[in-house]
Amino acid sequence: MTPAVAGRAAGRTRRRRTVLRHAVLIGWGAIIMFPIYWMIQTSFKDSGEWVTWPPNWLPQDPTLKNYEQVFTFDVQAAGVAREATEQPFNIWGSLLDSVLICSISSLIALFMGTFLAYAISRFNVGGSTFRHMVLLVRMIPPIVIAIPLLMYYAIMVPFATETLLDTRISLFDTRTGVSALYTTVTLPFVIWMMLSFIEEVPYTLEHAARLMGAGRIYTLRKIVLPLVASGMVVTFLFVFILSWGEFLLALTLTHPDVSTLPVLLNKYQSASEGRLYGPQAAIGTVITVPVVIMGILIQKHLVKGFSFGMMRR
């Protein structure tokens, strides 16, 4: 073979390889997108089209009825309820619960976790293995803490407040209770992620500030926090997504007053009157879209950060 022919052959192999690679990747992309596509298109179908054989790949007669039903306060009064499949739920209460619980718990976790990460990074608080131990809390299966928490919230806290404060305060089925729990379970993530951001800030910046006479808190406020601000946004969004999707603990610790969005979706799923595929698809879409957007926003940082510093040199 002459070099030119060999080169052309190599080029062909390379091209074939590239085509094959893209074919595999596009194939997986299709698998990824399919359930999401199915949910979104179902959310625009009316009840007659939810289940047909063969299934309709796109809504024949696109409608916003599902969204109307989900977003209407009083389904009966507004007349958007369906005869056979009437449901008392609307999304507003759960939406408010989810937004409040997730943002408050993520904010508190963010601030506590950031300060602890700072202390771990700068003063080695808790020793060298502490940062690994922190992850332990996260690895405990939620079912194992669900039972104790239920009794704690429903029995022990009311009992304690009654004896100590003379008022009965229950954390069961309250936003406070769920928020406190979410703060705790997301803290390990905040600590772990913020550690990696804080360790990128050179110590000497703080030393310089201290030498110029700045106090601890002033240094933290003027030097460290501005430099890790973008990291804090990423971390906030990450734990927000975690809390937003949490199901088991919310299911355990709430009913009937408070219900987060996953719990609401589950109520539809287990409804006895027959499945409401359309409104469920609408709720699913409403739950999914904001977090997927948040996820795409922080994805660059995730790719960088998920080797846990094991590969960094």
Binding site: G245, L261, P262, L265, G284, I287, V291
Partner: peptide, 10 residues
């Protein structure tokens, strides 16, 4: 990023 419950539903 998709909520696990939504995955279950899907």
């Amino acid at each position: 990023m998709v909520v696990p419950v939504v995955v279950g539903y899907n």
